[in-house]
Write a protein that binds this DNA or RNA. Structure first.
Lengths: 293, 293
DNA sequence: CAGCCACGCCTTGTATACAAAAATCAGGCG
DNA sequence: CGCCTGATTTTTGTATACAAGGCGTGGCTG
C-alpha cells in the first residue's frame, strides 16, 4: 500500500553491450605470468595518457585529470585483457595477479577486480577463491558444449542473417575474410584468430538479435580459448574460403545453404581439434613444465 | 590516519561469516525502492538486532564451520535478489540502493557491488553510471530478442533432451509442472512464475550442455522480467497442460514433436504479452497516476 | 637422511573513508 | 505563477588499509 510512484522519467535503457568496435592495439604485453619471483614486473610506462608514475607514492594527487567516469577506461582495460586472451598472448593457465595488472594499467585493485569479475562471468578467466585469477583452461566437455552451442545458434541464425544481408554488410564481411586470410598467410596467428572471431561475431550481429549476438560473441571468445588448448598448429581455425563462401550464399539470400555451410565450417573447426586425452597426470605435468613462460 | 579497527567492523565481519543461516529468509522482502525522500525513511534506528557473539564463535573450524569465504554468503544474497526479481517482488524500475542492501544483508558495499555487477551482466539489473542499480525494464525489442532466442535454443534442444530423458527426470518434471499448476490455481503468482522458469531451466539442463543450459537459465530470468512489464494478468505465462504434454512427448522420445510443442508453447507466451506502446509522455503519466497498484 | 612442523611472505578478500556528481529542494526573479 | 539557479543531500565511484589464508621455505627431529 505505501507504494510511492516512480519519478516517471526512468526510461533510460542504456544497455552496455555489443560494443563491437574499439580495437586499438594497446599495452597488453606485460600482464603475463611470472614464476613466483619477487622482482617487479617490467613497468614500461608505455603509451598511457595517464600522467602517473608507477611508484604509487601519490595517494590522492590526481583527481582532476579523469573524465567524468572511469568507465571507459575500465572498458578499455577489459578489452585489452580480453583481446590478449583471445589472441593467445595470454595462454590458458596464465595467472593474472591483481597488483601486476594494477601497475600495468594504473588503476587500483578495485577496478581491476571489477574487470576480472566480468571476465570470469564470461568464462575467460577463472577465479579460484584464494588463488586469484588465471586464464581459464577449458575442459574437453566445455569445448564440446561450446561448439554444440555454436552449431545450434550460429546455424540457426543464418536464415535470419540472409534476410538482413545488405551489399554493404557483405562487402564488410568479405573484407574481414580477406584480412583474415592475409593474416593467416603472413603468419600472424593472433591477428587471424581475432579476425576470425570478429567475423563470426559480426555475422551474428547482422541477425538483429542483440541477445543472441552477445551470446555468440561470448562463444567465439571461448572458442578462441579452446583453440589455444586443443588446437593444432597447422590449419588454424577457419580455413581458406569457408568464410567467403558463406558470405556469397548469404548475399544471394540462400539462408538454408548458408546454414549448411556454417554447419560444415564449424564441424571442420571442431574436427581439427586434437582431442588428446589428458585424464592422467602425466600430460598435465608435461604441459605445466613445458609452459613455464 | 591509522585509525584502529573499530569493534563495529570486527563484529560485523564475524557476524557475516557466522550467521549464515539465520536471516536469509526474511531478508528478501525489505529491499524495495523508496521515493527518494530524505530523512524519514532512511532514519531507521537500525532496528535489526545484531546477534553477534564476540566470543569467537568458530575460530578453529577451518573446513566445516565457515567454508573458504563469504562466497557462499554472496551467493545466497545473489539468489535472494535474483529470486525476488524473478518472482516480481521487485518490479522493473525499482531502485536497488547499495546501502539499503548493505543494511539488509549485513554485508559491506563491496560485496553488494559484486553481486549487483553479476546481476547486471545477466541483464537482471541495470547499472546506470551515476545513478546506481535498478531492476531492468526490458524494452520491447529486448523482449522480442529474448523470445526469439528461446525459440531457437529451447526448441533446438528438445531432440537432445528427448534422448537424455529418463523416467526419474520425467517424474521430476511432471511434479514441477503440477506444482506450478497448483500454485497458479492458488493465486500464488510469484511461486508459479518461479516454478515455470525452473521447469524450463531444468529441461535445458537435461540436454547435458552446461553452456546452453546456463544461457537458457538467463533467458528465463529475463523472460520473467518481461512478463512483469508486458504480461497480462490473466493467463499467466505457461498455461495449463503445456508442460505436461511436453514431458509426455519427451518421455516417449519424440524429440521432434516436443520441439513443435515447445515452439507453440513459447509462441503462446509471447502472444499473450500486451505490447502497449508507451513512446509518448502522456501514456507514461497516465500509467503512473492511474497505477495505484 | 628424510619427513614433519612452524614460520613468514605473498596474495587476495573485505571494509571503510573520501570525493565527485546528480538530483532534489528552496528561494528569488522575470 | 512559473522557471531558473544555488545549495544541500544523497549516492555512487575509487582508493587504501587491514586481516586472513595459502604456499613455500627452512629448521628441527626421528
Amino acid at each position: 500500500m505505501p507504494r510511492s510512484q516512480e519519478p516517471l522519467s526512468r526510461q533510460s535503457q542504456e544497455h552496455a553491450q555489443a560494443s563491437l568496435h574499439k580495437e586499438q592495439a594497446q599495452s597488453r604485453d606485460s600482464a603475463n605470468e611470472r614464476p613466483r619471483g619477487r622482482g617487479p614486473a617490467s613497468g614500461q610506462p608505455h603509451s598511457h595518457p595517464h600522467p602517473q608514475e608507477p611508484g604509487s607514492a601519490v595517494p590522492r594527487a590526481r583527481r582532476a585529470g579523469k573524465n567524468g567516469d572511469g568507465a571507459d577506461r575500465h572498458d578499455a582495460i577489459y578489452h585489452a585483457i580480453s583481446d590478449a586472451i583471445i589472441e593467445h598472448q595470454l595462454r590458458p593457465g596464465a595467472r593474472l595477479r591483481e597488483d601486476a595488472l594494477t601497475e600495468v594499467f594504473h588503476v587500483s585493485r578495485t577496478g581491476i577486480r571489477k574487470i576480472l569479475q566480468r571476465l570470469a562471468l564470461e568464462q575467460l578467466v577463472t577465479l579460484t577463491p584464494r588463488r586469484g585469477a588465471s586464464v581459464t583452461r577449458p575442459t574437453e566437455s566445455e569445448a564440446r558444449d561450446v561448439f554444440a552451442a555454436r552449431q545450434l545458434v550460429e546455424c540457426g541464425l543464418m536464415p535470419e542473417v540472409a534476410d538482413y544481408m545488405t551489399a554493404d554488410a557483405a562487402r564488410e564481411l568479405k573484407r574481414m575474410a580477406s584480412d583474415e586470410r592475409e593474416a593467416l598467410r603472413a603468419g600472424e596467428h593472433s591477428r587471424a584468430i581475432k579476425l576470425s572471431a570478429a567475423f563470426h561475431e559480426r555475422l551474428a550481429g547482422l541477425s538483429g538479435n542483440a541477445t543472441l549476438a552477445a551470446f555468440v560473441r561470448q562463444l567465439c571468445s571461448r572458442s578462441s580459448l579452446i583453440l589455444a588448448v586443443y588446437g593444432t598448429t597447422g590449419p588454424l581455425g577457419c580455413e581458406a574460403h569457408d568464410h567467403d563462401d558463406l558470405v556469397d550464399a548469404l548475399e544471394r539470400g540462400e539462408g538454408n545453404h548458408a546454414r549448411t555451410l556454417m554447419h560444415h565450417h564449424l564441424k571442420e573447426i571442431e574436427a581439427s581439434l586434437s582431442v588428446v586425452e589428458e585424464t592422467a597426470s602425466a600430460p598435465d605435468l608435461h604441459q605445466i613444465f613445458g609452459m613455464v613462460r
